[in-house]
Amino acid sequence: MNQPVIQCEGVRKKFGRTLVLNGVDLNIPRGSIVGLLGTNGCGKSTLIKCLLGLLKIDSGTATVCDEDPWDLSAETKNRLGYVPQEIKLYPWMRVSQVIDYTGAFYENWKADYCEMLLDKWELDGKKWIKSLSGGQLQRLGIILALGHKPSLLILDEPAASLDPIGRRSLLKSLLEKNAEEEQTVLFSTHITSDLERIASHVAFLDRGRVNFFGELEELKDQVGGNLEDLFLKMNSRSEG
């Protein structure tokens, strides 16, 4: 594997007096699908936000595509897709307008691909944003993140409010992108079954540190049990 897409070394982040990230080390290789696992409130979103420059890293270093995440260049952003945990869009706009608006800023926006995704996920472009349900909004958020065919895709709990069909469909299209374009995906979740199929690597985040990072299949082969068992084991180990 060549140079990692995302590199973290000793990343720390404090909110007031609470230490959320306590020295995260993580190297995400190109072309991998990484599942970021952890209990609720263990800092998954914080880590992702730090990697996108939404939050300031207190100490330690992180690079995304060899750049400081605090000040990513337009070039890198053109290759980056992000699906936030909570999709917040202008409620007074229509779905297609929001897509057009977002697309206007990208150099290589694929409007027809978005159309295709809209069709596939049964979203009506003429619908008002405020009338969308949580799951529909999530789908739109994913379309907005995929429209420019990013080479790095970061998803923060993307499947949380999707129904099983939508979830399966999302995972499938992630896999396709990954297979066709060597897209790297970082994917935070606490739903282990989402990862079983698609993840090449997993990272367990616990109490602000990465407890384990490696290939999922290797881990299963060595430790045994499915991801949920592993997840429970990881957490009990750290508790013990």
Partner: peptide
């Protein structure tokens, strides 16, 4: 929103 940070 975070879009202002991630959109180039």
């Amino acid at each position: 929103t975070s879009y202002c940070r991630t959109i180039p």
